[in-house]
């Protein structure tokens, strides 16, 4: 029974290995990137950026007729740039608050992407199902390589530039005063977001990638006291939801991306409940101690 549930999937062909590899790579890169975006309060901008990768990719395909990795990357990065420019424009000249500006811009562009995809770009091998559900097992070799490169690059950059990143995230003013290129770091973060979105696109789809970005960071933030710990916990959360999600998708015969996301959200809920209970318990203890010390006197 246990063998059938847990071990057997690994022995039939290499698809389980491949699926876990793909989802782990997505989990690691998104969790690290997500931690910085979360702390900079850019979760919703990340949501917008993940959505507009779709129109970017479709527009790039329509203009060049190519679906090669570099074209897709370029399309998504350009779409990201256009989006952040438009959001700032609407904020400033449309007198819209940031959240409204984000909502206006990304929903419009996403709608455009969906229409282009379902009319002019029908022969592209992207379909709506892929956009919505992703397909962990359907990731092509070149996409897997891109994903691996992106993950290694993100890990390496984070380790190498940990301190500048920490300072620029926590206190951009001091970082700027120290002469750190704060603007460049921000731009790099957004660029990496576009690239990661593209790399994760086939595996988890345009909408669910946002879960891989926000959920691990939010979970880690509940328990971590230091940035180093937060990054590690976020990666652990991502990996755990990737593996558990794969199992869940096998047992239920459902979308693996959806299963990963659901598992991740459950892990968050459990962590939230646990930290909340611990706080309540500690408070109750403190109150008891106070009462006990008050009694004899």
């Amino acid at each position: 029974m246990l063998y059938e549930l847990f071990i057997e999937p690994w022995t039939i062909g290499d698809w389980m290995w491949r699926g876990v590899l793909v989802s782990s790579l997505v989990a690691i890169s998104c969790a690290i990137l997500g931690t910085f975006l979360y702390l900079k309060r850019l979760s919703l901008l990340a949501d917008a950026m993940a959505h507009v990768a779709l129109p970017g990719i479709v527009a790039a395909y329509l203009l060049t007729g190519s679906q090669s990795t570099p074209t897709m990357l370029l399309g998504a990065i350009l779409a990201g740039l256009v989006t952040s420019g438009l959001i700032r424009f609407v904020e400033r000249y449309g007198h819209a608050r940031t959240d409204a500006a984000i909502g206006i811009v990304f929903t419009s562009l996403f709608a455009l992407g969906i229409l282009l995809l379902s009319t002019f770009a029908r022969d592209a091998h992207l379909d709506l199902n892929c956009v919505l559900y992703g397909n962990v097992l359907g990731v092509a070799d070149h996409s897997l390589i891109l994903l691996a490169v992106v993950t290694v690059a993100i890990v390496a950059l984070t380790v190498l530039f940990f301190r500048p990143l920490q300072l620029a995230t926590f206190d951009p003013a001091l970082a700027a005063a120290f002469g750190l290129p704060v603007g460049l770091i921000h731009a790099g973060l957004m660029g990496t977001l576009s690239v990661t979105t593209v790399a994760s696109f086939e595996a988890v789809g345009a909408i669910l990638v946002i879960a891989a970005i926000i959920t691990p960071a939010a979970t880690a933030h509940l328990i971590a006291k230091r940035l180093e710990t937060m990054l590690l916990v976020a990666v652990a959360h991502g990996l755990l939801s990737a593996v558990l999600g794969m199992y869940l998708s096998i047992w239920l015969e459902c979308s693996s991306a959806g299963a990963m996301v659901t598992t991740g959200a459950l892990l968050y809920a459990v962590t939230l409940g646990a930290t909340w209970a611990r706080r309540r318990w500690r408070r109750a203890q403190r109150r008891q101690r106070l009462q006990a010390s008050a009694l004899p006197g």
Partner: peptide
């Protein structure tokens, strides 16, 4: 008021950040 107090960073880390200006991009 302009500090993000929910940031996962300890007192020691914050004070040590005062030295980052002398470390450059790669220094420890």
């Amino acid at each position: 008021g302009s500090v993000d107090w929910d940031f996962p960073v300890t007192v020691k880390d914050v004070v040590l950040m005062g030295r980052y200006g002398r470390l450059g991009l790669f220094g420890r």
